[in-house]
Amino acid sequence: MAEIKLKLKKKPELPLEADIITPDNLVGKTIAEIKKLAIYHGKEVVKLGDFFDISGKSTDINDTKIIIEGDLSNVKRIGEKMSGGEIVVNGNVGMHVGNQMNGGKITVNGNADDWAGAMLQGGELEINGDAGHYVGAAYRGFWQGMKNGTIKVKGKVGNETLAWVNGSKPGNRFPKLICGSAGAFLGIHSHGGIIIVEGDSDRCAGADQVRGTIVIKGKISRLLPSFKKIGEVNEIELPNGEKITGKYIEYSGDHSVAKNHSKIDKKTGEISNSSNGRLYIAA
């Protein structure tokens, strides 16, 4: 695999917007050409070579691996809209890492800031540390957030993770998040996401979800009143066919959403206020 190595020379004082660092933009360029690419430091346009030591080369996008070293906690938008190849960040990374990517893989060996993997369209984002708020969430005002792909976070994720996630069984799209623990409003306004929390979750998981599956293997600090207990299960089948075994309490909800249209039961003639969303909490 062809490698391109970037090493941060010094931590920038102001946020550095490096949306240029994707395999799509660097592939097929010489080191001299890559060094001249523009990035933004505050309102100044600077060259990539001013902040990074660069070495290596690549020819094919799917065969490209970009390795970035250093404390990138003030470097934003790495891997924005990337479509293939691989990025490995050895250190902390700033906001919007891998936002709107639709292919390839990003591995962060450190913590990520807010909006990691926002509106992911495909590909894989792995964070071997904690992530900030709005992981995989829709940007402000968007009604369709993450549509496909997988996000794995070893540590905790912040609030409103996977807001407006939009999966589809007929469309064969299964956006998925696996995280260590979660903040408040996990999967709010979910339209069919799969969320697995290995630990605990803060208040209001699954708020306003129309469809979607949330599995919490630990505890939830405050369950929403609009979730109704169905019963205990020993095995959970996720929409993508995967199975999780263990004792869980199954809840349906969110029952407050009007989009969960009330139906009249054909046998009994009664109105059933069903909901397609499911929340599983360890028994």
């Binding site: 209001c204 929403l224 009143p225 609009s226 029952h255 009330s262 109105i271 206020n273």
Partner: peptide
């Protein structure tokens, strides 16, 4: 407040809630 609005919306939809107090 969020939980209270949430419960009001569910009751408005005609759902019998599991809880006694919100």
């Amino acid at each position: 407040d969020y939980e209270l609005i949430n419960a009001i919306r569910a009751v408005l939809r005609g759902v019998e809630l599991d809880v006694k107090e919100v």
